[in-house]
Amino acid sequence: MPEETLNVVETEVTEQVDTQTEVETPQEKTYTESELQKIIKDRISREKKAAEKAVEEASRLAKMNEDEKAKYEMDKLKEELADLKRKDARYSMSAEATKMLTEYNFPIDEHVFDIVVKDTAEETKDKVDWFANYVTGIAEEMSKKTLSGTAPKMNVAGNQAMTKEQLNKLSYPDRMELFKTNPTLYNQLK
């Protein structure tokens, strides 16, 4: 079946600074029939799931007597309270972890929080200390690797390796520099 193309017109309002007038400029965005069907199907699916959940809740409540309803509502409230307490504890531990990481001069990142924030202050402190030691150890190891390279070897005799040909190829300012820094070599090559 050939796809039909539907046009949807969107308008955009722009303001001109000089004249302070509004101008409507239509922009067309086209959707194929299959794209529209997919959008509609997704929306219907979401709404259907929400409606099914509400019906399920209502049927569960309808089957219960007054005491069971009260118990069910109480259990739901307890679950919500426990969830809120967990979230509050995580927030508090995140604040503590922020203070501890700041003391170590570490950048604060959500991924770091996932590693160091635990349920209690003691566990969080232990994880922050572990993390700080771990990162510091890695930094020291990388620094040692960087600094462990061999130093460039200097010619102990200075410019002894220079030949008369090399001296002749030097520019006048370079010859004067050699004369100032090592006059004996300059006189030998001259």
Rank of each mutant, 00 (worst) to 15 (best):
P183S: 11
E35K: 05
Q166R: 07
N168D: 14
P107Y: 07
T11D: 12
K127S: 15
K99H: 12
K144I: 09
E103H: 12
A62V: 05
Y104R: 08
E103P: 00
K145G: 08
M176N: 11
N187D: 14
S92I: 03
A157E: 12
E177T: 09
I40Q: 10
E10L: 13
V135F: 04
E10T: 12
D18G: 02
N187T: 05
S92H: 10
G149A: 14
E12T: 14
A51H: 08
K48N: 07
A121K: 14
V9Y: 13
L61I: 06
Y186R: 06
F131Q: 04
K145H: 06
S59M: 14
K153Y: 03
P107E: 08
K87I: 07
A58W: 10
S92C: 02
V135P: 01
T184C: 00
K180L: 09
Q27S: 10
Q20P: 00
N182K: 08
G137S: 01
Y31D: 01
K125M: 09
L77Y: 10
E47A: 11
E165I: 06
Q16P: 00
S143T: 13
E10Q: 14
S143V: 04
M162F: 03
M1I: 09
K69N: 01
K38N: 06
S148F: 07
T21S: 04
E12N: 08
P183N: 03
L185T: 04
E177R: 10
H111D: 14
P2F: 04
M74Q: 14
E110L: 08
D174Q: 15
A97W: 01
E123T: 04
E56R: 15
L170F: 07
E15V: 15
L189S: 09
E12S: 09
T181R: 15
A89R: 08
E123L: 08
E73A: 12
Q166C: 04
G137F: 03
E47D: 09
N155M: 11
K29C: 01
F106R: 04
V23Q: 13
K53L: 05
L6M: 12
T21I: 11
M176A: 15
K164T: 11
N105I: 00
D42I: 07
M64F: 02
I138D: 09
L189R: 05
T184G: 08
S92Y: 01
K71M: 03
K69T: 05
L84I: 10
R43Q: 10
K49E: 07
V112D: 01
S34V: 10
K169F: 06
M1G: 13
E103G: 13
A82K: 12
D83R: 15
E10G: 05
V8A: 14
S34F: 06
E4W: 05
M162R: 01
E66T: 04
E15Y: 11
T163D: 06
E110Q: 14
V8H: 13
Q160E: 14
A139C: 02
V17T: 11
H111P: 00
K63W: 00
Y91L: 12
K38V: 12
V8G: 01
Y91D: 13
M142T: 07
K99W: 09
K125L: 10
F106S: 03
N187F: 09
A161Q: 11
K144L: 06
I115N: 03
R60C: 03
L178V: 04
R90T: 12
K169T: 10
E122I: 08
F113S: 05
L101A: 03
K164L: 08
L36C: 03
V128G: 02
K48P: 00
E35G: 00
E73F: 15
T102I: 02
